[in-house]
């Protein structure tokens, strides 16, 4: 028997879609703060908290960000550039540091996407952007690397969920088995 908390969380996870068509309506600062807070409470190894979030909404800066980010939905109205601060991850060593940065950012972004959906916003995680271009545009120091962009806005589409494999097709118990 599932509790209401489980049902709500699973519903939000399953309902969320990557949205590529948006209305003109702007995302409020209050909504953004809620989304950022959700990101900030993601799991973080050794409490390293290497995230840096940069919100871009201003017309000129946002327009430039979109042109430097080929995968960014053209109609979205807000971007959160999710970065990692290498000064916070370097104690993990050269090999682990970039892996840790990607893991931390990925978990924070998932929290943000789910919170955005729960606020009736559309969102899309975007990996297709020019890292060099974004670093220059946002004047990021060398140690701060943009890892993912989060596109936000009010959705103008409601895509059908794509097919997912059944859990049993990707899960084995106790040891690996081809399924």
């Amino acid at each position: 028997m599932k509790s209401s908390k489980e049902e709500i969380i699973l519903e939000v996870i399953k309902e969320r879609r990557s949205i590529r068509s948006y209305t003109d309506e702007k995302v409020s600062r209050e909504m953004l703060m809620t989304i950022l807070e959700a990101g900030q409470w993601a799991p973080t190894p050794s409490n390293v908290q290497s995230w840096r979030f940069i919100v871009v909404q201003g017309a000129q800066q946002f327009r430039a960000l979109k042109t430097l980010s080929p995968g960014f939905p053209r109609e979205a109205t807000t971007a959160i550039v999710v970065c990692s601060d290498q000064r916070r991850t370097k104690s993990f060593g050269e090999t682990l540091s970039p892996i840790l940065a990607a893991e931390e950012v990925a978990m924070a972004v998932q929290n943000m996407l789910l919170m955005a959906h729960s606020l009736n916003l559309g969102s899309c995680a975007v990996a297709s952007f020019s890292e060099a271009g974004i670093k220059e545009l946002l004047e990021l120091p060398d140690e701060i690397s943009p890892i993912l962009l989060v596109a936000l806005g009010f959705p103008n589409e409601h895509p059908i969920a794509p097919q997912r494999k059944n859990v049993s097709q990707i899960t084995s118990w106790e040891r690996y088995q081809e399924v």
Binding site: T67, F129, S130, G133
Partner: peptide, 12 residues
């Protein structure tokens, strides 16, 4: 803007 988009796409 279009030229910038093409340059960023080519790099990516």
């Amino acid at each position: 803007d279009i030229c910038t988009y093409i340059a960023a796409s080519a790099e990516k």
